[in-house]
Design a protein around this nucleic acid. Structure first.
Lengths: 232, 232
DNA sequence: TTCGCACAAGAGCACTGCTCTCGTTGCGGT
DNA sequence: ACCGCAACGAGAGCAGTGCTCTTGTGCGAA
């Protein structure tokens, strides 16, 4: 630890690179065959490695999946954050909200397996890793940020129990605008978030087949309804 | 096929019974270890059979899962239908609606693996079997039935494209009250259905951890909000 | 009674996650 | 400059999987 702090030894470089290559191959395979069929051996094969070598970098298949989950959360979160950003000063909160919702939907349609990985059924016995929860908060927090900026008139009072849970959210949100949102706004935002997840999940998982299948109109109308309901 | 039409031969009986036993064992295993870990061999082991024998009754593991999917859809659908039924003549549509929503949530919490099977990520390459879609329509159709009975004033006009898709739904719903629902009502109902799925999925899949985790209050408030939004 | 077909069992194939052992090689401390 | 350790990749191997094929057996229709 003495001289190695500044210099990066060749081994460290090689480790980082190979880790990235494994992740990249796993990402490719995830996009192709899905999480259920992702196999450590196939990843190793694609890289010309022995399967046992991969286990030096990811102790278990679930660890590899967890890394992919974090990546997916971050990718989706970045997309939503970018769409929610007030690019122009005059951009209304409603525009930011609908853009963020649409961004999540688009991301999910472009990365269905990644979406299923993070918002579908938890794979075996789920993990509540702190990395995943942090990364998973980005998108809903971006939405809450928009709501806090708009500070809409709360349309629906919340019970004391609900307000306490909302306070937990604002406490975890830090001291930004999202951290100062009213409990009614937090609850309404959470409601909108779960509704959005339901909309996107239904479409991505094929539950809307034979009904609202090309779901663009349905999704757009639903997002508008959500914005109305939030008072944006 | 001559005399066998009336009498049930011993073979047929045995086949039906063993099929039921296999399904029952599979159901038990699904509830315990989840769909991903459900194995034909373990089912056979539990029944004291060779694994190859099971394949005489379900040609493939996916066929077994499909049967479980149909069972789960029917179970959930029956629970929702029962809750949505106008048990007393004076029961308001709003009561029926909230009861149906709560019934779905309760069913999902009692059968998380079954819920994940039908509303989580589709397992490998999905199947759009006609049996599953029919069974899967029961719960949302029960909700639509309640809405059609209430015939609320449509709060939100729908575009022509959306109305056409709604017509597809009413056409498939047959000639009951649900089949005569206005397009605006059908779309609003579909919106409520996806929102309900998002709420229940978020809770069952653990997405609400650290925020609205004992989710009874949040769920109840969300269902009330949905009922309000529907004009019930 | 006889023939045929459905049946259960078992071996076997290709695959999986994961572990263990082996020879090698890079790297830090003396 | 050297030595020893730890990290490394390869390969074999274990237990498990879905699924197939063959083999023998007993029920049931003709």
């Amino acid at each position: 630890m003495s001289t190695a702090s500044a210099t990066t030894t060749a081994r460290e470089r090689a480790r980082r690179e190979l880790t990235a290559e494994i992740l990249s191959a796993a990402r490719r395979q995830l996009a192709e065959v899905g999480a259920a069929a992702l196999s450590v051996r196939a990843v190793a094969r694609e890289l010309g490695l022995a399967s046992s070598a991969v286990y030096r970098y990811f102790a278990t298949r679930d660890d590899l999946l967890t890394a992919l989950i974090v990546e997916a959360y971050d990718s989706a979160g970045a997309a939503v954050e970018a769409a929610a950003r007030p690019t122009a000063p005059g951009r209304t909160p409603r525009e930011r909200f609908t853009a963020a919702c649409t961004a999540l939907r688009s991301w999910a349609l472009e990365h269905p397996h990644e979406y299923a990985l993070v918002h579908g059924s938890p794979v075996p016995g789920y993990r509540g890793d702190s990395r995943t929860t942090a990364a998973g908060s980005r998108a809903p927090l971006a939405l809450l940020h928009v709501l806090a900026d708009a500070d809409p008139a709360p349309r629906r009072p919340v019970s004391a129990a609900l307000a306490e849970q909302a306070a937990r959210v604002t406490a975890a949100a830090g001291d930004g605008p999202a951290g100062r949102a009213a409990p009614e706004v937090v609850v309404a935002g959470a409601r909108a978030w779960t509704a959005l997840l339901g909309l996107v999940s239904s479409e991505v998982f094929g539950q809307l087949a034979n009904t609202f299948d090309p779901a663009d109109a349905f999704a757009a109308a639903t997002v508008e309804a959500l914005a109305d309901d939030l008072g944006l």
